[in-house]
């Protein structure tokens, strides 16, 4: 079971709502390798966000298994908080803590969860802020930042936990168009450094450029999966062809 190369293995995952009448995820199996960047695309309501959120159990699957580093995190006996520490998550709506400064947003989890020394954590946070060109906003509150700034902070906040994998749930969908680039640039850098990433996105340009593999979902199922060339140049299924015709 414990394949060294595989970071996450999803097996026959199902998520049903409303007494099983709505199939948000309908028998999905997929693997993500270490260091791989996987983009999940598809029309809204296709279950791509639900799939991503299942990976750290923000959504509890109805059935199926999710192995992270060979450990089945759907096992009720697993301490999921321990696993979430290794999985950074970036949300569409940032979800920064408005009651804390930027610096505190970044340092609170390493300090309280990992029990790291404040000085060390502060230094790491400032170095990360430097990298995303926000060093001067360390003492600002989230309400004082632009959307693009907020999302960059959200990314480095997640990185502060030194995760093994980063999950992005439509990270640029709530941004004004002129701010999308600055967030995607940070994500590209991250990909170059070899971070394992799962990204739900509508940014086809980003998916084509950065992803090693692209997953196309529709109606709760994975319809096609392949390299950016496979997906964008040679879409096999009619649904993917339809989808690409609309978004490209």
């Amino acid at each position: 079971m414990n394949d060294d190369k595989v970071m996450i293995r999803v097996e026959h995952l199902k998520k049903y709502y409303n007494d099983h009448t709505i199939h948000a995820i309908d028998d999905v199996s997929v693997e993500i390798d270490k260091g791989e960047v996987v983009c999940i695309i598809g029309p809204s309501g296709s279950g791509k966000s639900t799939l991503l959120r299942s990976l750290n159990l923000l959504e509890m699957p109805t059935a199926g298994h999710i192995f992270v580093d060979g450990v089945d995190i759907t096992d009720p006996k697993i301490d999921i908080n321990l696993h979430r520490q290794k999985m950074g998550m970036v949300f569409q709506h940032f979800n920064l803590f408005p009651n804390m400064t930027v610096l505190k947003n970044m340092t609170i989890a390493p300090e309280k969860v990992l029990k790291e020394a404040k000085q060390e954590v502060d230094a790491r946070a400032r170095a990360l802020l430097e990298r995303v060109n926000l060093a001067d906003r360390a003492d600002a509150y989230p309400d004082q930042l632009s959307g693009g700034q907020k999302q960059r902070i959200a990314i480095v906040r997640a990185l502060m936990m030194q995760p093994e994998i980063m999950l992005f749930d439509e990270p640029t969908s709530a941004l004004d168009p002129e701010m999308v680039g600055e967030v995607l640039d940070v994500m590209k850098d991250l990909a170059k450094e070899g971070m394992t990433m799962a990204v739900v996105t509508h940014e086809m340009g980003f998916a084509r450029e950065v992803a090693e593999r692209i997953v196309f979902m529709d109606a709760g199922k994975i319809v096609e999966i392949g390299s950016p060339e496979d997906i964008f140049e040679n879409p096999k299924s009619e649904r993917l062809q339809d989808f690409l015709a609309k978004v490209l």
Binding site: L58, R84, Q85, M89, F91, L96, A158
Partner: peptide, 15 residues
């Protein structure tokens, strides 16, 4: 409080 705040806390490993 927005459910996103709880989710962000959870995703950072907070119980």
């Amino acid at each position: 409080i927005d459910v996103g705040q709880f989710e962000a806390g959870s995703s950072l490993g907070f119980h």
